[in-house]
Design a protein around this nucleic acid. Structure first.
Length: 413
RNA sequence: GGGGAGAUGCCGGAGUGGUCAAACGGGGCGGACUGUAAAUCCGUUGGCUAUGCCUUCGAAGGUUCGAGUCCUUCUCUCCCCA
């Protein structure tokens, strides 16, 4: 990469500025030199570049990992280029095989439409949707027909597709690979041809897919797209990539307190990564944070507030920080907690503790409630109760605490 | 079309007739500790009207006093040959 750039040092400062802005935090850049050339041309002609990001609507929640490519797309629109967001409603029904060790369940039309809507809503937390060109790839993919599909399929070889890490692993591991999954990369690569993308943005695991876009564009007589690969954000567990299926994610629309708390739970080593990729802080500034003696707790608090501010606002961020300190660090009760209506639930003014916990929704079964009690995780007004057979006579306003974070206030009659 | 292997709890993966609600690991949960919902350590992890009972090891039948473990059929997957 460095070599490629040094070949042509004549780029104007404006090209370099835009390039740096657009590629901030990228894990890999394919065709970086091409991108600079495109930028130079665009600046000269006043014609904006077309930056493509494809998103398959396959679930309701958008998590912070998705915001990395979204932020790159945002960078393009910030600079006056055209952000093209492709809602992969056709590809979603096939299912991206990337990183999967098994085929995804087939989604129905209704599910995809539903997901697409909530995706776009959540995307608005990062992008200014008025500036985004939204396209659905069913518009062209569904009209391809069998002949068109054959034509597409002729563009790649089985060996090429199988060379992908995820496929080869599945193949080697004796996992099923369906034909339609092999078509997937072609479908999304074809999108690039249709929207005439100058740049495509994607997660690092999408490398193969995006490269195929370049191939198809070349064959179609278009200039190849540059590819900006964002790193895969590591999830809360500190090892696997953030993903819904690993339960290690923070959703973009989670409540401020929840979001803040989850940030506080990341391993310390992850902080720099999160500062880099989830805030817009200057990279030098980020690096400076980690120089010398730093209190990880303070730093993580700062990180949490920065992230909550981005998705909510500064006031909520400050509140979340404060609440966390009081409730978690100092083990005080939070200000607001759900009421637990006990009217009609009591017998002779009392109730079994186990029933109470299940009633509050803090345990899925009596057995779980019993376990929680025995393990000392149940408190009423701060007093631990460890006898599973206890009967409680709840008083209005008393606080039931289960585990570290589950609270309810009794409301009697 | 032929031959072989396999399907176990949230996940991975042991288990080959009773002592199996099922080893072990991961994850989850609880506790202690702490600078945090980090790290570490300890405990726990099917359900119930609970020293017993019920449901669970791809599905349905069967053998047996007794089956995750044996038999039959079925469903699904993988591999090899054609």
């Amino acid at each position: 990469m460095a070599k490629e750039e040094s070949l042509d040092p004549k780029w104007s400062p404006e090209v370099e500025r835009q390039y740096a802005y657009l590629t901030r935090g990228c894990a890999e850049i394919i065709g970086g030199d091409q991108l600079k050339r495109k930028l130079a041309k665009s600046i000269e002609s006043g014609k904006p570049l077309r930056a493509k990001l494809g998103v398959d609507p396959t679930a309701h929640d958008l998590h912070l990992g998705f915001t990395l490519p979204l932020s790159r797309l945002r960078a393009f629109s910030d600079l006056g280029h055209t952000a093209v967001m492709i809602v992969g409603d056709a590809t979603a029904m096939v299912g991206d095989p990337t990183g999967k060790n098994k085929a995804r369940p087939q989604l129905t039309r209704e599910m995809v439409d539903d997901f697409a809507k909530s995706y776009l809503d959540q995307t608005a937390t990062v992008l200014d949707m008025d500036k985004v060109e939204v396209r659905r790839n069913s518009d062209w993919l569904h009209g391809l027909g069998f002949t068109g599909l054959i034509g597409l399929a002729a563009k790649a070889t089985v060996a090429q597709i199988l060379a992908r890490d995820d496929f080869s692993k599945r193949y080697a591991g004796g996992e099923p690979i369906h034909l339609h999954e092999m078509i997937y990369p072609l479908m999304q690569a074809y999108d690039s041809v249709v929207v005439e993308a100058d740049v495509e943005i994607g997660g690092h695991d999408q490398l193969f897919n995006l490269l195929l876009g370049r191939d198809l564009q070349r064959e179609a007589g278009q200039e190849e797209q540059a590819c900006l690969l964002t790193p895969l954000l590591v999830g809360l567990d500190g090892s696997k990539k953030m993903s819904k299926s690993f339960h290690n994610y923070i959703g973009v629309s989670e409540p401020a307190n929840e979001m803040f708390g989850k940030v506080m739970s990341i391993p310390d080593d992850l902080m720099e990564d999160y500062f880099t990729h989830l805030t817009s802080m200057d990279l030098d500034e980020v690096a400076a944070l980690f120089v010398g003696d730093v209190n990880p707790r303070e730093l993580k608090d700062k990180l949490g507030q920065a992230i909550v501010t981005r998705f909510w606002d500064a006031t909520q961020a400050a509140d979340a920080s404060e609440t966390f300190r009081r409730v978690i660090s100092e083990k005080q009760d939070p200000d607001d907690m759900p009421d637990l209506l006990l009217e009609g639930k009591l017998e002779g003014g009392s109730i079994g503790l186990i029933n109470l916990i299940v009633l509050a929704g803090f345990a899925a079964s009596n057995g779980e409630a019993r376990r929680l009690i025995k393990q000392g995780g149940v408190r009423i007004d701060g007093v631990a109760i460890t006898d599973e057979r206890s009967r409680i006579s709840p008083q209005n306003g008393q606080v039931l605490k289960v585990g570290k974070r589950k609270y309810a206030r009794f409301v009697c009659g």
